[in-house]
Design a protein around this nucleic acid. Sequence first.
DNA 1: ATTCAGCCTTA
DNA 2: TAAGGC
DNA 3: GAAT
Length: 504
Amino acid sequence: MRKSSRSRAYAPRSTPSPSTASPLTTLDLDIAGRNSSIVAESANVCSNSTIPQAISGQKSRDAMKMKVADDIVENGRNFGDDLSQIIGEVRQRFQDVPPLEEDEADLKPSKAKNYDSDAETQQEPKQKKQKKRARKDTSKTGFDERFACNRGGTKEQIEDKSNPNAFIISVFRKMLDYYTQINDHWRRLAYTRAITTLASITDRRISSAHEARELPNFGESLSTKLEEIVSTHNLKRLQYAMTDPISQVKMLFLGIYGVGPSTAERWIAQGHRTLDDLLQGVTLTFSQKIGIEHYGDLNSRIPRDEVTKMADYVKAEAAKIDSKVELIVGGSYRRGATTSGDIDFIITKEGTTSNQQLSTFLITLVRNLGKQGFLTAELAAHSSSKDHDGSKWHGCCVLPRIPGFNDNGGYKPVWRRIDLLLVPETEYGAALIYFTGNDIFNRSLRLLASKQHMRLNQRGLYKDTTPSNDRLKGAEGELIEGRDERKIFKTLGVVWREPHERWC
DNA sequence: ATTCAGCCTTA
DNA sequence: TAAGGC
DNA sequence: GAAT
Ligand SMILES: O=c1ccn([C@H]2C[C@H](O)[C@@H](COP(=O)(O)OP(=O)(O)OP(=O)(O)O)O2)c(=O)[nH]1
Ligand SMILES: [Mg+2]
């Protein structure tokens, strides 16, 4: 059932020929890439934390250089020089590297380890000071500022200049970046929240652990770190994180589309340290193969004007199939980003009430775009393999040569990730919220909904069947609204925010 | 000890 | 089901 | 990592 079920339908898995990186012309596709976003985490909290293009949670980032197999050439050039050096270092120092201390895992909370994962945090078991700060009474206003969705934020204000604790924030952000890359889910959440707290303080400087401890979202560990930052102007943990060879390798592996914390750590445990090692020593999934093959492309950002070109291309093709179908570019593009990690399309049509009514269109669109060489790989697509109503299509694409636009100094295909989301008109509003994000905004909004005994997902806002009662997705709950974006905000008591104000 | 959003696809 | 991703 |  593995390979067989997968292959049928429209497009075979792609046949990316490493050396021949020019998808166009080849009929049918070779699909590849897609993005891998590690995006930020955290529910409430946010204000002006996470960064759009600067950090953008993407796996990219400077440290993301990589070394690819010699036979794999990206854009005609073999890249990986400096990375090679880093890797080389890793190789050597590898032998006497401590067993990667704790775990940093964000896996299952199952085998919870009690001991602090931070060596430096080892403090005496000082009795917890009662920190039962009175929580904000939100019952009256119905407006809980602890939720990021209620604070909003624009990509501009992310660079909060004059904040008395700006330096502390900057260091915490680096820690956040680190945990984002290393994919430590919950620490990311914790740091995001702490940063939000600090960012909201505009009238004073926090300079001691004691002082910090009184703040929301600041526990023992973060308070201690804050003091260390203020007093020593440095943070050992960060210093270590940035230089630890194993962490670097983990980040390298996490940059591969289709590789998460579990796989990355397993490979490291098995002794792998470079992408070469992986190509030769492990069994890769289809996505991972493409992830490695197009490591550079897929970890690079897409300029806004290029996203626009891609959108035009796809829309034009869609119009030939069914002019009534509407395509909206969501994601960071809709939020006004100057660069995006991928391109996200919402596909809808007036009068539709189910994905099935759109699946035929999708299949045709994908087939046509594949024939043209625009789509180059299929990474996930329920729609094409099953006869039911698949709701999404994830793959890769390459913008063809456009004279005067991307052929300066010669055209070279660049693989980009593309996501298509099928949306019946009845779910348009909820889907728009979902696909516009950002992710933190969404989570905040959903958390807020749940606290009001409602459930928000990409299809709609539902009235739940009691908090404890259900929990089993069997109980759908009653649909409150799915069509209108604004109504959903309103029902939740959240002030309307334009897409560009949803950077959390 | 649990929760931190909620859902879809792949292997 | 575990893992990865949106 | 923090709150409950
Ligand atoms: O964990 C996630 C990831 C994404 N999304 C939503 C919000 C996001 O805006 C949209 C598209 O996902 P994508 O990964 O493309 O993020 P983006 O906001 O478009 O940023 P990028 O520029 O990296 O593509 O899906 C979530 O709800 N949860
Ligand atoms: Mg996107």
